Computed example of a mutant assay.
Amino acid sequence: MAFTGFPEAALDFYDDLEIDNSKVFWDEHKDTYRSAVAEPMGELTDELAGEFGAAKIFRPYRDVRFSKDKTPYKTHQGAFVAVGPATGYYVQIGAPGVRVGAGFYEASAERLAALRSAIDNAIHGAELEQLVRKYSRTGWEIGGDALKTAPRGWSPDHPRIELLRHKSLTITRDYGFDEVIHSAALVREVRKDWRVATPLIDWVCRHG
């Protein structure tokens, strides 16, 4: 089926789940999750797959084995299109609305070393720096895990030390409760933003 938007019931579901994150609540509302969240997310990502690739729609269950927080369910539904190791495009819906993102979400030691070497390079590093500056200027939030200090072997005075500190690097944009999330036009908006994010993905895939 074609994507027609996330219904209000999807936002209500996650509002309630944040209050009562229990198996009892889930079992009583799993049909709402299926019809208001999971199925529309599948339809949305299916319409984007021709250009960006097939998405992995994440399971709603949390891995609580090593966590102090034992609540069993995620309070958002995410989907990820991988184009490289832990690198690609992201979309999610939760109580705060809809969010899109892109970037690399983790890296092995070897890959991180390669990316930092590219950041150190005058040409490649300046290219990434310009991309990140442009995203920030146009309303994207720059995120990812970053060291508080300079990585081992790098000078704190490096001109791109802020980028070198990143262990992952992402950009995100919130649609929140904008009416577009309840309509078929959300496909167009996500497609547009993922296209804007593609130069970052390409840079990471070239150098990592």
Score class of each variant (00 low, 15 high):
119 I>A: 03
115 L>G: 01
9 A>C: 13
47 E>H: 07
63 D>F: 00
14 Y>Q: 05
198 T>V: 09
195 R>C: 09
45 T>Q: 04
173 R>D: 08
73 Y>W: 11
34 R>S: 06
186 L>N: 03
16 D>W: 00
200 L>C: 04
154 W>Y: 15
99 R>Y: 09
136 S>W: 00
1 M>H: 15
27 D>V: 09
191 R>P: 02
116 R>H: 10
60 P>Q: 07
163 L>Y: 07
164 L>V: 00
201 I>D: 06
23 K>I: 12
197 A>N: 00
18 E>G: 06
104 F>D: 00
11 L>K: 11
68 K>R: 15
203 W>S: 09
202 D>V: 07
12 D>K: 13
127 E>R: 13
150 A>K: 09
153 G>D: 15
113 A>T: 14
137 R>C: 07
83 V>P: 04
114 A>W: 02
36 A>D: 04
9 A>F: 09
65 R>M: 05
133 R>P: 01
58 F>A: 07
59 R>N: 11
13 F>R: 04
86 A>G: 03
146 A>D: 14
64 V>W: 00
12 D>F: 09
199 P>L: 09
34 R>Q: 12
92 Q>A: 14
138 T>D: 11
40 P>D: 02
65 R>G: 08
51 E>V: 05
72 P>V: 05
113 A>D: 05
74 K>N: 13
98 V>D: 06
47 E>G: 04
62 R>M: 01
73 Y>M: 07
83 V>L: 15
194 W>S: 04
44 L>W: 07
204 V>H: 03
190 V>A: 06
51 E>Y: 02
199 P>S: 11
127 E>I: 02
109 A>K: 13
89 Y>T: 04
97 G>T: 06
109 A>G: 10
32 T>H: 08
15 D>H: 10
206 R>I: 08
155 S>I: 14
85 P>Y: 06
69 D>S: 06
130 Q>N: 14
139 G>Q: 09
33 Y>L: 11
37 V>K: 01
70 K>Q: 15
54 A>S: 14
56 K>W: 00
155 S>Y: 12
162 E>T: 13
131 L>P: 03
149 T>Y: 13
144 G>Q: 13
19 I>E: 13
116 R>S: 07
87 T>N: 04
52 F>D: 01
143 G>V: 12
132 V>T: 11
192 K>T: 15
30 K>I: 05
104 F>W: 14
202 D>Y: 02
148 K>D: 15
